[in-house]
């Protein structure tokens, strides 16, 4: 329902927390987004942007979780069925 895309904060302007804006880089396309709801975010962080607002900071460690999970499955498989 809600199209929200991850992008990298490349610059931040404004001091007032409510009007703080960031320029967000999406693979070479840069768009302005409000950083009002992600006060903890710094330049270089990835944020998820929806209708011009950063809604959350991407947790880069947690982002690996899906792949780690697969790795676990893979290891389990190998235990069960040794490679032919």
């Amino acid at each position: 329902m809600c199209l929200a895309i991850p992008g990298k904060v490349v610059s931040i302007s404004g001091d007032d927390p409510l009007t703080r804006m960031g320029r967000i880089d999406f693979s070479g396309v840069v768009k302005q987004a409000s950083l009002a709801y992600v006060p903890e975010v710094n330049i270089g962080d990835y944020v998820i942007v929806h209708v011009g607002f950063a809604l959350s900071k991407v947790d880069e460690d947690e982002a690996q979780k899906v792949f780690q999970y697969l790795k676990q499955i893979g290891e389990l498989d190998e235990l069960k069925e040794p490679a032919p």
């Binding site: 329902m1 809600c2 929200a4 409000s34 709801y37 929806h50 209708v51 011009g52 607002f53 809604l55």
Partner: peptide, 8 residues
């Protein structure tokens, strides 16, 4: 919109 859009 849903809760996602309401903050905006």
């Amino acid at each position: 919109g849903f809760e996602t859009t309401a903050p905006a």
